[in-house]
Design a binder for these strands. Structure first.
Lengths: 115, 115
DNA sequence: CCAATACTTAGCCATATGGCTAACCAAACA
DNA sequence: TGTTTGGTTAGCCATATGGCTAAGTATTGG
Protein backbone atom coordinates (compact mmCIF):
# COMPACT_ATOMS: atom_id res chain seq x y z
CA UNK A 1 0.00 0.00 0.00
CA UNK A 2 3.00 2.26 0.41
CA UNK A 3 3.46 2.69 -3.33
CA UNK A 4 0.28 3.92 -4.96
CA UNK A 5 1.80 3.77 -8.41
CA UNK A 6 -0.45 6.52 -9.72
CA UNK A 7 1.00 9.07 -7.34
CA UNK A 8 4.60 8.28 -8.28
CA UNK A 9 3.61 8.49 -11.93
CA UNK A 10 2.33 12.01 -11.40
CA UNK A 11 5.23 13.09 -9.21
CA UNK A 12 7.93 11.90 -11.59
CA UNK A 13 6.08 13.26 -14.58
CA UNK A 14 5.74 16.63 -12.89
CA UNK A 15 9.49 16.70 -12.25
CA UNK A 16 10.33 15.76 -15.83
CA UNK A 17 10.26 19.37 -16.98
CA UNK A 18 12.77 22.16 -16.36
CA UNK A 19 10.11 24.82 -15.87
CA UNK A 20 8.40 22.79 -13.19
CA UNK A 21 11.62 21.84 -11.44
CA UNK A 22 12.51 25.50 -11.46
CA UNK A 23 9.18 26.28 -9.79
CA UNK A 24 9.88 23.64 -7.16
CA UNK A 25 13.26 25.24 -6.58
CA UNK A 26 11.71 28.68 -6.24
CA UNK A 27 9.05 27.50 -3.83
CA UNK A 28 11.75 25.84 -1.76
CA UNK A 29 12.62 29.34 -0.55
CA UNK A 30 9.03 30.01 0.41
CA UNK A 31 5.50 30.48 -0.99
CA UNK A 32 4.91 32.73 -3.99
CA UNK A 33 2.09 33.95 -6.19
CA UNK A 34 1.52 32.62 -9.69
CA UNK A 35 2.58 35.82 -11.45
CA UNK A 36 5.60 36.04 -9.19
CA UNK A 37 6.60 32.53 -10.23
CA UNK A 38 5.89 33.28 -13.88
CA UNK A 39 8.05 36.41 -13.92
CA UNK A 40 11.01 36.24 -16.26
CA UNK A 41 9.86 33.10 -18.00
CA UNK A 42 9.59 33.07 -21.79
CA UNK A 43 6.08 31.71 -21.68
CA UNK A 44 2.52 33.00 -21.65
CA UNK A 45 0.65 33.06 -18.37
CA UNK A 46 -1.89 30.40 -19.44
CA UNK A 47 0.93 28.08 -20.50
CA UNK A 48 2.68 28.59 -17.21
CA UNK A 49 -0.54 28.02 -15.32
CA UNK A 50 -0.69 24.54 -16.81
CA UNK A 51 2.63 23.73 -15.23
CA UNK A 52 1.36 24.86 -11.87
CA UNK A 53 -1.71 22.66 -12.32
CA UNK A 54 0.53 19.71 -13.15
CA UNK A 55 2.50 20.28 -9.97
CA UNK A 56 -0.77 20.51 -8.06
CA UNK A 57 -2.04 17.28 -9.56
CA UNK A 58 1.14 15.58 -8.41
CA UNK A 59 0.56 16.99 -4.94
CA UNK A 60 3.94 18.70 -5.01
CA UNK A 61 2.39 22.13 -4.76
CA UNK A 62 -0.69 23.34 -2.94
CA UNK A 63 -2.37 26.63 -3.75
CA UNK A 64 -4.85 28.95 -2.11
CA UNK A 65 -6.58 31.93 -3.54
CA UNK A 66 -6.92 35.14 -1.56
CA UNK A 67 -8.56 38.00 -3.36
CA UNK A 68 -7.29 37.80 -6.89
CA UNK A 69 -3.94 36.30 -5.97
CA UNK A 70 -3.22 32.57 -5.98
CA UNK A 71 -0.41 31.66 -3.66
CA UNK A 72 1.58 28.47 -4.23
CA UNK A 73 3.49 26.49 -1.64
CA UNK A 74 5.73 23.47 -1.91
CA UNK A 75 4.66 20.23 -0.27
CA UNK A 76 7.94 18.75 0.89
CA UNK A 77 6.27 15.53 1.98
CA UNK A 78 5.50 14.66 -1.61
CA UNK A 79 9.11 15.15 -2.54
CA UNK A 80 10.07 12.75 0.21
CA UNK A 81 8.10 10.16 -1.74
CA UNK A 82 10.84 10.32 -4.33
CA UNK A 83 13.43 9.84 -1.63
CA UNK A 84 11.53 6.86 -0.28
CA UNK A 85 11.30 5.28 -3.70
CA UNK A 86 15.01 5.72 -4.20
CA UNK A 87 15.73 4.27 -0.80
CA UNK A 88 13.69 1.21 -1.64
CA UNK A 89 15.70 0.72 -4.82
CA UNK A 90 18.91 0.91 -2.87
CA UNK A 91 17.63 -1.69 -0.48
CA UNK A 92 17.03 -3.98 -3.43
CA UNK A 93 20.60 -3.50 -4.69
CA UNK A 94 21.91 -4.33 -1.28
CA UNK A 95 19.79 -7.43 -1.10
CA UNK A 96 17.91 -6.26 1.99
CA UNK A 97 14.24 -6.60 1.20
CA UNK A 98 12.92 -6.19 4.73
CA UNK A 99 10.42 -3.39 4.73
CA UNK A 100 10.80 -2.36 8.36
CA UNK A 101 14.21 -0.94 7.72
CA UNK A 102 12.61 1.63 5.45
CA UNK A 103 11.38 3.81 8.28
CA UNK A 104 14.72 3.74 10.06
CA UNK A 105 16.74 4.66 6.99
CA UNK A 106 14.36 7.44 6.17
CA UNK A 107 15.03 9.29 9.41
CA UNK A 108 18.71 9.80 8.53
CA UNK A 109 17.95 12.70 6.24
CA UNK A 110 14.73 14.19 7.57
CA UNK A 111 13.54 13.22 11.03
CA UNK A 112 10.08 14.58 10.74
CA UNK A 113 7.31 12.41 9.38
CA UNK A 114 7.49 9.05 11.06
CA UNK A 115 3.86 7.94 11.20
CA UNK B 1 26.53 23.09 -14.93
CA UNK B 2 25.94 20.37 -12.43
CA UNK B 3 22.36 20.08 -13.62
CA UNK B 4 22.26 19.34 -17.33
CA UNK B 5 18.53 19.88 -17.46
CA UNK B 6 18.09 17.59 -20.44
CA UNK B 7 19.37 14.58 -18.57
CA UNK B 8 17.10 15.13 -15.59
CA UNK B 9 14.19 15.57 -17.98
CA UNK B 10 14.87 12.16 -19.46
CA UNK B 11 15.54 10.47 -16.12
CA UNK B 12 12.37 11.74 -14.45
CA UNK B 13 10.32 11.05 -17.55
CA UNK B 14 11.65 7.50 -17.67
CA UNK B 15 10.66 6.97 -14.05
CA UNK B 16 7.16 8.34 -14.59
CA UNK B 17 5.79 4.98 -15.67
CA UNK B 18 5.02 1.90 -13.58
CA UNK B 19 6.31 -0.53 -16.19
CA UNK B 20 9.65 1.22 -16.36
CA UNK B 21 9.97 1.58 -12.59
CA UNK B 22 9.23 -2.10 -12.35
CA UNK B 23 12.06 -2.80 -14.80
CA UNK B 24 14.40 -0.67 -12.70
CA UNK B 25 13.35 -2.68 -9.67
CA UNK B 26 13.95 -5.95 -11.46
CA UNK B 27 17.37 -4.89 -12.70
CA UNK B 28 18.26 -3.83 -9.19
CA UNK B 29 18.63 -7.54 -8.43
CA UNK B 30 20.95 -7.99 -11.39
CA UNK B 31 21.11 -7.92 -15.22
CA UNK B 32 18.43 -9.62 -17.29
CA UNK B 33 17.51 -10.20 -20.91
CA UNK B 34 14.72 -8.30 -22.64
CA UNK B 35 12.38 -11.28 -22.88
CA UNK B 36 13.13 -12.14 -19.28
CA UNK B 37 12.13 -8.63 -18.27
CA UNK B 38 9.05 -8.73 -20.49
CA UNK B 39 7.80 -12.01 -19.05
CA UNK B 40 4.46 -11.78 -17.28
CA UNK B 41 3.68 -8.30 -18.54
CA UNK B 42 0.39 -7.68 -20.31
CA UNK B 43 2.08 -6.02 -23.24
CA UNK B 44 3.48 -6.94 -26.64
CA UNK B 45 7.23 -7.32 -27.02
CA UNK B 46 7.59 -4.29 -29.31
CA UNK B 47 5.67 -2.12 -26.86
CA UNK B 48 7.85 -3.31 -24.02
CA UNK B 49 10.99 -2.70 -26.07
CA UNK B 50 10.04 0.95 -26.28
CA UNK B 51 10.15 1.18 -22.51
CA UNK B 52 13.60 -0.32 -22.49
CA UNK B 53 14.69 2.22 -25.10
CA UNK B 54 13.30 5.03 -22.97
CA UNK B 55 15.30 3.79 -19.99
CA UNK B 56 18.37 3.60 -22.20
CA UNK B 57 17.86 7.11 -23.49
CA UNK B 58 17.72 8.29 -19.89
CA UNK B 59 20.95 6.43 -19.22
CA UNK B 60 19.31 4.44 -16.45
CA UNK B 61 19.83 1.17 -18.28
CA UNK B 62 22.66 0.01 -20.52
CA UNK B 63 22.30 -2.95 -22.84
CA UNK B 64 24.61 -5.25 -24.77
CA UNK B 65 23.74 -7.83 -27.35
CA UNK B 66 25.39 -11.23 -27.32
CA UNK B 67 24.20 -13.68 -29.91
CA UNK B 68 20.50 -13.02 -30.21
CA UNK B 69 20.05 -12.01 -26.59
CA UNK B 70 20.10 -8.41 -25.41
CA UNK B 71 21.09 -8.11 -21.79
CA UNK B 72 20.04 -5.07 -19.76
CA UNK B 73 21.76 -3.69 -16.69
CA UNK B 74 20.87 -0.89 -14.32
CA UNK B 75 23.13 2.14 -14.14
CA UNK B 76 22.96 3.12 -10.49
CA UNK B 77 24.97 6.28 -11.10
CA UNK B 78 22.14 7.74 -13.08
CA UNK B 79 19.73 7.06 -10.28
CA UNK B 80 22.06 8.91 -7.93
CA UNK B 81 21.36 11.94 -10.10
CA UNK B 82 17.86 11.92 -8.68
CA UNK B 83 19.27 11.73 -5.20
CA UNK B 84 21.58 14.65 -5.90
CA UNK B 85 18.73 16.75 -7.24
CA UNK B 86 16.68 16.02 -4.17
CA UNK B 87 19.61 16.85 -1.91
CA UNK B 88 19.98 20.21 -3.63
CA UNK B 89 16.31 20.96 -3.02
CA UNK B 90 16.72 20.16 0.64
CA UNK B 91 19.65 22.50 0.85
CA UNK B 92 17.44 25.25 -0.51
CA UNK B 93 14.77 24.59 2.09
CA UNK B 94 17.34 24.79 4.80
CA UNK B 95 18.62 28.10 3.50
CA UNK B 96 22.09 26.75 2.83
CA UNK B 97 22.86 27.76 -0.73
CA UNK B 98 26.60 27.22 -0.55
CA UNK B 99 27.54 24.86 -3.33
CA UNK B 100 30.63 23.47 -1.65
CA UNK B 101 28.55 21.63 0.86
CA UNK B 102 26.97 19.76 -2.03
CA UNK B 103 30.05 17.69 -2.67
CA UNK B 104 30.48 16.84 0.98
CA UNK B 105 26.88 15.79 1.51
CA UNK B 106 26.92 13.79 -1.66
CA UNK B 107 29.77 11.58 -0.48
CA UNK B 108 27.59 10.15 2.28
CA UNK B 109 25.87 7.90 -0.22
CA UNK B 110 28.29 7.54 -3.12
CA UNK B 111 31.84 8.88 -2.91
CA UNK B 112 32.61 8.59 -6.57
CA UNK B 113 32.51 11.43 -9.08
CA UNK B 114 33.94 14.52 -7.49
CA UNK B 115 35.15 16.64 -10.40
C1' DC C 1 -17.06 54.29 -11.65
C1' DC C 2 -13.00 53.20 -14.48
C1' DA C 3 -8.90 51.00 -15.36
C1' DA C 4 -5.32 48.11 -14.32
C1' DT C 5 -4.01 43.64 -12.25
C1' DA C 6 -4.21 38.71 -11.62
C1' DC C 7 -5.65 35.07 -13.04
C1' DT C 8 -8.96 31.80 -15.79
C1' DT C 9 -11.39 29.50 -19.58
C1' DA C 10 -11.77 27.98 -24.03
C1' DG C 11 -10.23 26.80 -27.87
C1' DC C 12 -6.39 25.54 -31.50
C1' DC C 13 -2.11 23.27 -32.97
C1' DA C 14 2.17 20.45 -33.33
C1' DT C 15 4.56 16.92 -31.35
C1' DA C 16 5.32 13.07 -28.08
C1' DT C 17 3.78 8.82 -25.74
C1' DG C 18 2.19 4.32 -25.29
C1' DG C 19 -0.11 0.74 -27.21
C1' DC C 20 -1.01 -2.46 -31.25
C1' DT C 21 -0.13 -5.71 -35.55
C1' DA C 22 2.47 -7.50 -39.34
C1' DA C 23 6.52 -8.69 -41.16
C1' DC C 24 11.35 -9.34 -40.92
C1' DC C 25 16.22 -10.78 -39.40
C1' DA C 26 19.51 -13.82 -37.11
C1' DA C 27 21.11 -17.16 -33.78
C1' DA C 28 20.17 -21.63 -31.68
C1' DC C 29 18.29 -26.20 -31.72
C1' DA C 30 16.70 -30.72 -33.38
C1' DT D 1 17.86 -28.08 -43.11
C1' DG D 2 14.10 -26.39 -41.10
C1' DT D 3 11.97 -24.41 -36.94
C1' DT D 4 11.87 -22.20 -32.89
C1' DT D 5 13.39 -18.37 -30.13
C1' DG D 6 14.68 -13.56 -29.28
C1' DG D 7 14.61 -9.42 -30.88
C1' DT D 8 13.74 -5.62 -34.34
C1' DT D 9 11.52 -2.48 -37.79
C1' DA D 10 7.85 -0.26 -39.69
C1' DG D 11 3.82 1.40 -39.68
C1' DC D 12 -0.93 2.79 -37.48
C1' DC D 13 -3.81 4.83 -33.87
C1' DA D 14 -5.65 7.25 -29.73
C1' DT D 15 -4.52 10.19 -26.25
C1' DA D 16 -1.52 13.38 -23.65
C1' DT D 17 1.65 17.34 -23.44
C1' DG D 18 3.15 21.87 -23.99
C1' DG D 19 2.77 25.88 -26.33
C1' DC D 20 -0.22 29.76 -28.24
C1' DT D 21 -4.13 33.51 -28.66
C1' DA D 22 -8.45 35.57 -27.57
C1' DA D 23 -11.64 36.60 -24.53
C1' DG D 24 -13.48 36.16 -20.19
C1' DT D 25 -14.00 37.08 -14.57
C1' DA D 26 -13.02 39.13 -10.34
C1' DT D 27 -10.21 42.28 -7.27
C1' DT D 28 -8.01 46.28 -6.28
C1' DG D 29 -6.42 51.11 -6.70
C1' DG D 30 -7.41 55.82 -8.26
Amino acid sequence: MANQTGVLDDVFLALADPTRRSVVRHLGRGPASVSELARGRAMSLPSFLKHVRTLERAGLVSTTKTGRVRTCALDRERLELVHDWLAEERRVWEGRTDRLEQLVTRSTTSPKDLP
